[in-house]
């Protein structure tokens, strides 16, 4: 008889982080808890040597380099860690993928303040009717710029984190600023 397999700490961390990310992206606007605060758990769950990553926050570079991922420029990166977003400039450079391969669109991780700031109304797949929430800490005009940039099914997907809390805004979600 085989012994019962036990996940190692890395596996547990990555599994929990992915559980939170999958839930957050399939139910836009509903926050979930990551196992650890910040980007660490997201990096553990998603990033390895097959990825091209960009980080605006130099503090993350050693951690990203350790995964073996290629450190790339923003337009070429498939996973983008923007830290706390100061300006709208990075938004215009995010990879959108193509109509043939929408999966090439970037995944952007941004630090925000949940529960304060702009009042938003989300609609689209994963949202039961409409959902109102407040997201602060993003530069003015962010949601307008996102709407102008995304050409569904081309686009980028947002993972917004505040400490351990995570909110997903996939490209399929329409965001109205109230």
């Amino acid at each position: 008889m085989l012994t019962t397999p036990v996940p190692n700490p890395d596996e547990t961390l990555a599994n929990r982080a992915f559980d939170a990310l999958l839930w957050a992206l399939s139910r836009p606007g509903l926050p979930r808890d990551l196992p650890t605060a910040g980007e660490t758990a997201i990096i553990a769950a998603l990033i390895d040597r097959e990825c091209r990553v960009f980080s605006a926050d130099p503090a993350l570079i050693p951690l990203l380099a350790e995964t073996g991922a290629e450190i790339a420029d923003l337009p070429q990166a498939d996973h983008v860690f923007l830290g706390a977003l100061g300006s709208l400039a990075p938004l215009s450079q995010l990879g959108l993928g193509s109509d043939l391969y929408p999966d090439d669109g970037a995944t952007a991780v941004i630090r925000v303040n949940l529960g304060s700031g702009d009042r938003l109304r989300l609609t689209g797949p994963g949202v039961d009717g409409a959902l109102d929430l407040q997201i602060g800490g993003l530069p003015g005009g962010f949601w307008q710029a996102r709407r102008e940039r995304i050409r569904y099914p081309m686009g980028f997907d947002l993972i917004l984190i505040d400490g351990t809390r995570v909110v997903g805004i996939p490209r399929s979600t329409s965001v109205e600023v109230l």
Binding site: P5, P7, E11, L22, L46, P102, D103, T107
Partner: peptide, 25 residues
């Protein structure tokens, strides 16, 4: 754990997130 190696799981995770982001694609 779970038979698949860690890099196989990470690839599947990335693709699952993209599949959810573009429903039906």
């Amino acid at each position: 754990y779970g038979f698949l190696d860690a890099s196989a799981k990470r690839e599947l995770r990335r693709k699952m997130l993209k599949a959810v982001a573009v429903p039906g694609c």
